[in-house]
């Protein structure tokens, strides 16, 4: 199979289920089903994942200083869509392939908003589709503006 391998492990599902407050027995034990958004955690296996500190590389978060906004930073997650072809089970390996989708722009309150899609197909070892995921990100154009108050 081509694509980024994502070994689906029972312990990883347990940790993910705990983090989302899902204590149902379906996500514990050896023969567990992954929660519906679990494929996002395939980022753990992406060697180039930008949102994880990596040994020997500069991390953009705070240390002795406050950190720096990375190139293309300031983006937010606008939408997320999943299509399930079958449940994801512990013990299998999925293979993730990501391609860019559509991009468009909208006029926001403080300037143009640039939207872009990424479509990731998760297939099993036989090449059958398991989960199709579509991410929509939004980046405001131009300089940073004061954010919404809490």
């Amino acid at each position: 199979m081509t694509g980024q391998p994502f070994p689906v492990e029972a312990g990883h599902i347990m940790m993910f289920a705990r983090a989302i407050g899902d204590e149902t027995p379906a996500h514990r034990g050896e023969t567990v089903l992954a929660p519906p958004t679990f494929t996002m955690a395939s980022a753990q296996y992406d060697p180039d994942h930008r949102l994880r500190p990596r040994q020997g590389e500069e991390w953009f978060g705070s240390g002795s200083g406050p950190g720096v906004m990375p190139e293309g930073g300031g983006g937010l997650h606008a939408e997320q869509h999943f299509e399930y072809h079958r449940p994801v089970r512990a013990g299998e390996t999925l293979y993730a392939t990501t391609v860019p989708g559509r991009s468009w722009e909208k006029q926001g309150r403080t300037g143009r908003l640039l939207f872009s899609e990424r479509v990731t197909e998760y297939r099993d070892a036989a090449g059958e589709p398991v989960v199709s995921a579509r991410t929509v990100a939004v980046v405001p154009e131009g300089p940073a503006t004061p954010k919404d108050a809490r």
Partner: peptide, 25 residues
């Protein structure tokens, strides 16, 4: 959730970055 998902974006995990660099509360 950051640890389980692998999304360690400091916007979610780093109060100083979120305030001083990203301009959020």
């Amino acid at each position: 959730y950051a640890g389980a998902s692998g999304d360690y974006n400091p916007l979610h995990t780093d109060e100083r970055f979120a305030i001083e660099v990203a301009g959020y509360p």
